[in-house]
């Protein structure tokens, strides 16, 4: 399992290096390979090569999720822009704790980061299955408690256990 992650990380790093460097001489290609090997070795020593550090098990299902998230971000941005430009600042900040149903650590990270990327809501604290969320409007807070986004995050990893 760990070997597979190391190898995929090495391949990704090498492709990244090759595209950015733009050199084709054998000597520099070898140097690139050595640099990638050292990086993978350091990552291995730092013990970050787990399902969170190199999530190769994420299927292509995440791409539709990104598009959906982009749509949400655009909607929230226009809402916030309208609020900020109105002469009376009509905000009603609320902060609340909630329990997520996501059991997987990576799912929780994706969920918390998605909440933060959407401008009207940010994640303040995440401990175990408890999230503390700060929302700028009451309506946005209710949308979170409606759990639509949580269900979509759950869908990304459906069927994958571990």
């Amino acid at each position: 399992m760990n070997l597979r992650r190391s190898v995929t990380l090495w391949i990704i790093l090498y492709i990244f290096w090759y595209i950015l460097s733009g050199y084709h001489t054998p000597l520099l290609l070898t140097f690139g390979a050595i640099a990638c090997t050292i990086s993978v070795w350091i990552a291995h020593r730092m013990d970050v090569l787990d399902q969170e550090g190199n999530p190769i098990h994420l299927t292509l299902k995440i791409i539709p999720y990104w598009f959906w998230l982009g749509g949400e971000i655009i909607k929230a941005n226009f809402e916030l822009a309208k609020m900020l430009l109105s002469p009376k600042l009509e905000i009603s900040p609320v902060m609340f704790k909630m329990k997520t149903e996501l059991t997987n650590e990576l799912d929780r990270v994706i969920y918390a980061n998605s909440l933060t990327l959407t401008p009207i809501t940010i994640t303040v604290e995440q401990e175990g299955d408890e999230l503390e969320v700060h929302a700028l409007t009451v309506k946005a807070a209710q949308d979170i408690l409606g759990r639509d986004m949580e269900r979509r995050v759950k869908n990304i990893n459906d069927g994958w256990e571990g």
């Binding site: 916030l80 933060t116 401008p119």
Partner: peptide
Amino acid sequence: FSRSHAAGM
């Protein structure tokens, strides 16, 4: 806290 919403925007 609310300023960080604007920065996120």
